[in-house]
Design a protein around this nucleic acid. Structure first.
Length: 1097
RNA sequence: GGGCGUAUAGCUCAGUUGGCUAGAGCGCCGCCCUGAUAAGGCGGAGGUCCCAGGUUCAAGUCCUGGUACGCCCA
């Protein structure tokens, strides 16, 4: 290869601060020496260089801050939206739904991950020409907001909130729920997520809430709502039910001692009892629920023992008899009975309070019953146990709940009215003992949930709740789900699909304060029942005479009117106390954010479903699900078309997810200000987390640094390389795709393929795949195209060939910036504007592949050449032949190897050989190896396959003239095998990947070749010394060399070459003179001394 | 306790309808190349494909049963 850089430029570029500026540049805050990023193109002024000076080692965070400022100043985001027409009736809009976060905490890396995806896809679609409005959403209601407010106000529990005043409490929620909105905004901004905060939506807005009650009313009108009692964890101390979330908080479950009692129930006699009284044994750790007992359950397949003692027969699980040895001492086993044979029998109520209850006091069958604990016969109090409730309900037994909000017995339980249920355990046990029903009383220690606020044990208690009849349209959801594209695909029929199949009715009411109120008004006198549901402010105004300015409690509760169905005029219509589950609100986002149907009616109807949403995979149970339920119930549509489910971020050990309460991550500011937001974006977008996997994240780890080193730096370096030489030459490049130069044609064709593949990946929402394509392109660009094209940029004359190189590199870089813009919005915009001089890459159209030449054959041939070079370098390595040592020839033997003719000079240069021979004469250089097609032959041959494979390995096979092969006693037809090449023994050769060609290297080193090798080694050493001496690339030098004896002749032979290469004006032999920059090193096995002096002055 | 998912090199992950000696990137070691590059090339070390059974000519891949971890539900 011919290195003419210094000489080429030395003669005519004086005055350009090529090398000298470096230390200065490094101290600059951004990538440009001047604020070129803001300046328009300078090409109009011939006295100035065409491109900004680029810092080879820039601070990316500083570049990002500059770009941010420019976007703000030029309103680039707003322009990018406004430039794209909405089209007729919004037909050109791409609809993105933003899943609203809570803003009562700071955002963390998990939010950034989602936000990056929420930004990348809309950026891409915008470049594709679509108009993508991006409204930010805030989730404002719900328990987290209430809990935070209770804490801040120093109050706890429902009663305390009511004492404080619901109005004041809700005001506090309203003001604190967006406490961190400002921080959110600045982080989102810093990470280059483009989203509209001005025109945001909040679930607590009046318009939003009106749409939510509209949706509620729709369900009501469709008969999809009902009210029912359901058992929930309940804190009697705080007078509130708790969500599952709350019962899972740390320290919620802890050991507690409770009484465990075994009690008898007397069966109503029936035929077959032989006149002997029969009693069944039940066991419970909550004696206070016994007054509410309405049934017992047995396992149909469980064996029950019948024991007789003192003329009474006791029935209990056969496996549990041992537990009551003492109590049943002397009892005689008189038989066993299957649970199913007990089902249907009745027994005497233990307490009289609910003796009239229909269908009650019977033995029921239930699969969940076992004999691990208790007697194998389970006491059922449907008001206080979920299983109890389900089984009883299925058997027509209504729930009774004789316990009030504060956990005390109501008047129904006359004996203990007003007593806290837990305190009532003792007197109840005493009563049972006196009644002769108590068989055993022990103390039982178990893990039991406690209220995290009051520290008191929870109870389970049925509470009224409103439900959406999801089971009615579950099958339709399953159908509609098939229309959605899920990333990763398996979510559709896996996590989400299965969840839909098993969907249960959805409890949508909460006994809370801060939320959209359930818009139902009920008569307060059961004698005159009536219920009204309201779905708009208009409807409320019509009936109540006032138009609410705020739908929140307590104002909404003030709307009361006489019951129209009550002729006495005494009963009133009052709102039910509950508010809606906040998931109902976020699931209403598609229509509520635009105040449908009160406004934007036709827009919504033509823009539903949305095109794209992305959240973490657990939202299959959250937002994705509630969107689906409401979309199906209200519109009979799947609510979104494409959905990315990303995984979760784990701490470096992989043990826990990143979480605020673990404190296991560092400040995002640190990452933004050291690595930059683009590095973080690429790191996250390129990872398997975008395909549903998890990602161990360590902000201090090499992963982020690798992105800078392997993705961002190479792009920047290509840009730096281009501007460096274009400025030296004063050349302004233009967008051109018609260069005839080989390497140009190659990289242009490669760029076309990049545009096509990245477009396809982005269209498939494969963000990680997009990153892969870009990475491999960057490799081809930097490590092949630019490296192999360098000398064209170095040439002294302004040739067409050189202009082609500039134009092509410019064209490729501009295109690369566009293609990578969604994934690296900052760096691509800095490079793009540096090249083009104005505008923003984000205002550009997606490149049209048709504008770039297609030439797949050339791309493939070039890849072939790179393979040849790899294999050849491996051969050199194997034979200890350093690359600087020229060799006589390289032979590529293979079918169609002549195709590489036009690329031979690249191979020659790359692997340093004098000649490249291309031949089809395989036999001369290679032997054949049989490779049977296992997929084809396996099923056909079966067991005989083994013999064929053995023969293949041993080489014991024969090729026939008709193209068939015999191996292992089997005849293989053409097409059932391949013949692959292997290099011949004794030759310095190696097969190419794919095994259809071999490379043979001539390893004979003649004295001439050796001498040239020494000369090149010496040049290399001198260049190294120049660098160490900190000479400018263009500096001329005086040179003294003291070379080992054996090399002197070689150096003298190539003296002219050496002097030219290292810009030496003079070359003397012997020790360096005083004042020269001196280097002691080696050349070959001998000592080498170099002396250099710059003549630049 | 139930459901879903995951388990492959030091790390992060590919691995198609079962089919060649299980791959990539990063990291590590050695060599090479290097005046745009914080880069690049070649080679090496590094694997009981979580475990145990089974099906098959052939299993990382399919089946059964475990184990560990994650998520969800109870």
């Amino acid at each position: 290869m011919c290195r003419r850089v210094p000489s080429a430029h030395g003669s005519r570029v004086e005055g350009y601060p090529v090398g000298e500026g470096r230390c200065l540049q490094a101290r600059r805050p951004s990538g440009f020496r001047q604020s070129a990023v803001f300046s328009p193109a300078m090409s109009s002024n011939p006295n100035q260089q065409p491109y900004p000076d680029v810092d080879p080692r820039p601070s990316y965070p500083a570049i990002e801050r500059e770009i941010l400022a420019r976007w703000k100043e030029e309103k680039t985001f707003e322009q990018s939206v406004a430039n794209r027409p909405a089209g007729k009736n919004g037909s050109n809009e791409y609809v993105f739904y933003d899943g609203p976060p809570f803003a009562n905490g700071l955002p963390h890396y998990g939010h950034f991950l989602t936000s990056y995806a929420k930004d990348a896809v809309p950026r891409y679609q915008t470049m594709r020409g679509r108009r993508v409005e991006r409204r930010f959403g805030w989730d404002c209601h719900g328990l987290p907001a209430e809990m935070a407010s209770e804490k801040e106000l120093g109050i706890s529990g429902r009663q305390a909130i009511q004492d404080h005043g619901i109005g004041a409490f809700n005001e506090h929620c309203r003001s604190s729920v967006l406490k961190y909105a400002g921080e959110w905004e600045s982080y989102i901004d810093r990470m280059a997520r483009w989203v509209d905060f001005e025109d945001d939506y909040k679930t607590m807005d009046l318009s939003y809430m009106e749409s939510v009650i509209w949706a509620f009313k729709q369900l009501w009108d469709k008969g999809l709502l009902y009210e029912k009692h359901r058992v929930m964890p309940y804190s009697w101390a705080a007078e509130t039910p708790l969500s599952n979330f709350e019962t899972r908080l740390d320290n919620s479950y802890r050991p507690r001692q409770d009484p465990a009692v075994t009690v008898t129930l007397t069966l109503v006699p029936q035929d077959g009892d032989q006149g002997v009284p029969h009693k069944i044994l039940i066991w419970t750790t909550t004696p206070w629920t016994l007054p509410s007992n309405l049934a017992v359950a047995v396992g149909p397949d469980i064996d029950y023992a019948v024991l007789e003692q003192d003329g009474v027969r006791y029935v209990l699980g056969a496996a549990t008899v041992g537990k009551l040895q003492k109590q049943l001492a002397g009892a005689e086993e008189v038989g066993t009975v299957k649970g199913r044979d007990l089902v249907g029998r009745s027994y005497e109520p233990l307490f009289p309070y609910f003796a009239d209850q229909e269908n009650a006091f019977r033995v029921l069958g239930a699969d969940f019953v076992d004999t691990e604990e208790g007697t194998g016969i389970v006491h059922m109090a449907p008001g206080f146990g979920e299983d109890d409730q389900l089984i009883c309900e299925a058997n027509g037994i209504e729930v009774v709940v004789p316990v009030d909000d504060s956990g005390r017995f109501t008047e129904e339980v006359t004996d203990w009215v007003g007593i806290n249920v837990l305190e009532a355990n003792k007197p109840i046990i005493k009563h049972l003992k006196e009644a002769g029903a108590l068989v055993k009383h022990e103390t039982y220690e178990h893990n039991y949930p406690h209220c995290w606020r009051t520290d008191q044990p929870l109870i389970y208690k049925a509470l009224g709740s409103w439900y959406v009849r999801v089971t009615d349209f579950r099958d339709r959801m399953v159908e509609l789900n098939q229309e959605i594209r899920w990333i990763p695909e398996h979510v559709r029929d896996g996590q989400f699909g299965k969840w839909l199949e098993g969907a249960r009715d959805w409890s949508i009411s909460r006994n809370r304060f801060w939320g959209t109120p359930i818009p139902i008004w009920k008569s307060d006198d059961p004698a005159y029942p009536r219920m009204d549901c309201y779905g708009s402010l208009d409807e409320l105004e019509r009936d109540f005479g006032v138009r609410p300015k705020d739908l929140h409690r307590p104002y909404i509760d003030e709307l009361v009117r006489p019951n129209p169905d009550d002729p006495t005029g005494k009963s009133m219509m009052r709102r039910v106390p509950e508010v809606l589950d906040c998931w109902f609100e976020s699931g209403s986002m598609p229509y509520a954010q635009v105040h449908y149907p009160f406004e934007n009616k036709s827009w919504f109807e033509s823009h539903f479903p949305g095109d794209f949403i992305v959240e973490y995979v657990a939202q299959t149970r959250g937002w994705f699900y509630t969107l689906m339920v409401l979309g199906t119930a209200l519109f009979d549509r799947a609510p979104f078309r494409n959905c990315i489910c990303h995984g979760i971020l784990l701490e470096p050990s992989g043990e826990r997810k990143l979480g605020k309460r673990y404190g296991n991550y560092s400040s995002p500011d640190e990452v933004f200000e050291t690595r930059g937001a683009d590095a973080l974006r690429w790191y996250m977008m390129s990872s398997p987390i975008m395909r549903g996997g998890n990602l161990r994240f360590d902000s201090g780890d090499t992963g982020l640094g690798d992105v800078t080193r392997l993705v961002i730096n190479p792009i920047w370096n290509a840009f730096y390389f281009f501007t460096l030489y274009a400025n030296i030459d004063g050349t302004r490049a233009r967008f051109r795709t018609d260069s005839e130069q080989l390497l140009d044609r190659y990289i242009l064709a490669k760029t076309r393929e990049l545009v096509e593949t990245v477009g396809a990946k982005m269209d498939a929402y494969d963000l990680a795949g997009t990153c892969q394509e870009i990475t491999s392109f960057i490799d081809a660009l930097n490590n092949w195209y630019i490296r192999r094209s360098r000398d064209r940029f170095w040439g002294a004359e302004a040739t067409q060939e050189k202009q082609d190189a500039y134009d092509t590199l410019y064209t490729v870089l501009v295109t690369l910036c566009k293609v990578a813009a969604p994934m690296l919005p900052f760096i691509t915009d800095a490079v793009f504007t540096g090249l083009v001089g104005e505008g923003s890459v984000h205002l550009e159209d997606w490149p049209d592949a048709e504008n770039l030449p297609a030439n797949h054959a050339l791309v493939a041939d070039m890849d072939r050449v790179r393979d040849v070079c790899s294999v050849t370098l491996a051969l050199r390595e194997e034979h200890g032949l350093r690359t600087r040592l020229p060799l006589a020839s390289l032979t590529v033997a293979g079918r169609d190897s002549a195709r590489l003719e036009s690329l031979a000079h690249l191979m020659r240069d790359e692997v340093n050989v004098k000649a490249v021979e291309l031949t089809e004469d395989l036999e001369a250089h290679a032997t054949f190896v049989l490779a049977p097609d296992r997929r084809l032959l396996g099923p056909k041959l079966g067991k005989a396959m083994k013999a064929v494979l053995d023969a293949t390995r041993s080489g014991d096979w024969t090729l026939h003239d008709d193209g068939t092969v015999t191996a292992g006693g089997q005849v293989l037809d053409a097409g059932e095998f391949e013949l692959r090449l292997e290099s011949k023994e004794g030759e310095t050769s190696s097969a190419l990947p794919g095994n259809d060609a071999v490379v043979v290297l001539d390893v004979v080193v003649t004295p001439e070749l050796a001498a040239e090798g020494w000369a090149r080694d010496l040049v290399r050493k001198i260049q190294q010394a120049r660098k160490e001496a900190d000479f400018a690339v263009t500096d001329r030098i005086e040179l003294a060399v003291d070379v080992p004896e054996g090399c002197v002749a070689a150096v003298k032979t190539h003296e002219a070459y050496i002097k030219e290469q290292v810009l030496a004006e003079t070359l003397t032999y012997g020790s360096p003179s005083d004042g020269m920059f001196t280097v002691e090193t080696t050349l070959g096995e001998g000592a080498l001394t170099l002396g250099l002096r710059s003549t630049a002055g």
